[in-house]
């Protein structure tokens, strides 16, 4: 009874800290399990932590490593990709993602327009949408301010500034638009099962037109329940081909 009372008092005094300590302890236990090759234990602990910290890139990264150790390359790539979405400049995440991509050797044909967009707006892969939007906001503020100042002060320097910021704003607007399209407007997934059969219809009896390896990144278009048993996901391959796969074969990023 005294112990319960003591914990209660401690909790009241310290607020959240008791729970925070517990989470830190779980985090340490997960790391310990990882280093002792107890992958399943590490997995469940990290997953439980992820429920409390759903936007923590490090947890996604660690989960990616656990899946890599378990030999589930598709799942590993999925979690690295999630981590990279949150922390695109983190070198460990980039390195591991690149390593696993190389290891799986998955490379689907990409249309020229995608490659062009990727090369023209190369910086997009180093920034989150949040960062791009904030930058856009700042550039927009500077642009409109300089434009407003220009109403009162007619200096050539200010005119040049207005033009410069105007071009920068237009560029950033397109860049942020592309990033928005890639991250929020569209849904992406990574195939997590080996040899995923892509069918033209959501029926197992229909012959697949292609089989894709785990780790392949595809766009998710929609879903379809079938006979209340199977859930099918419609995907679009990088070359534009559409097909259906089972829900358990893809991990959303």
């Amino acid at each position: 009874m005294k112990l319960v009372f003591a914990i209660l008092v401690l909790s009241l005094l310290t607020g959240e800290s008791v729970f925070a300590d517990q989470r830190e302890d779980n985090f340490r236990r997960a790391s310990e399990a990882y280093y002792k090759n107890r992958w399943d234990e590490a997995l469940s602990l990290y997953q439980a932590l992820l429920k409390e910290f759903p936007t923590n890139a490090h947890l996604y990264f660690n989960l990616g490593n656990v899946y890599f150790r378990k030999g589930e390359m598709g799942r590993a790539l999925q979690h690295y990709a999630k981590a990279l979405n949150l922390k695109p400049r983190e070198p460990d995440i980039r390195a591991n993602l690149k390593f696993v991509q190389k290891k799986t050797g998955v490379e689907l044909p990409v249309p020229f327009s995608t490659t062009l967009k990727k090369n023209l707006f190369f910086w997009n892969s180093y920034f989150t949408l949040h960062e791009l939007v904030l930058s856009l906001l700042m550039v927009a503020a500077v642009f409109w301010s300089s434009l407003t100042l220009r109403l009162y002060i007619k200096r050539p320097l200010l005119k040049g500034g207005v033009w410069g910021f105007g071009i920068l704003l237009a560029l950033m607007l397109v860049s942020t638009g592309i990033k928005y399209d890639e991250t929020l407007a569209r849904r992406w997934g990574i195939l997590i099962k080996p040899e995923v059969a892509v069918r033209p219809a959501y029926l197992k009896s229909v012959e697949p037109f292609v089989k894709l390896p785990d780790g392949a990144k595809v766009e998710i278009l929609g879903d379809q329940e079938f006979k209340n048993e199977e859930k099918w996901i419609q995907i679009r391959l990088p070359n534009g081909t559409r097909g259906w796969i089972l829900e358990e074969e893809i991990g959303v990023i």
Binding site: R23, E24, F27, R28, S31, E32, Y34, Y35, K36, L49, F53, T55, N56, A57, H58, L59, F61, N62, N65, V66, F68, L86, K87, P91, D92, I93, A95, N96, F99, V100, T128, L129, H130, V133
Partner: peptide, 29 residues
Amino acid sequence: NRDWHLPVHEEIATIHTHPSVLMVREPII
């Protein structure tokens, strides 16, 4: 001071273990 054995090298960057990383929350619009 942990009693588990750390690998000398991993071919992938190893997990992030410092508890402070747990408190990092990425801002989301």
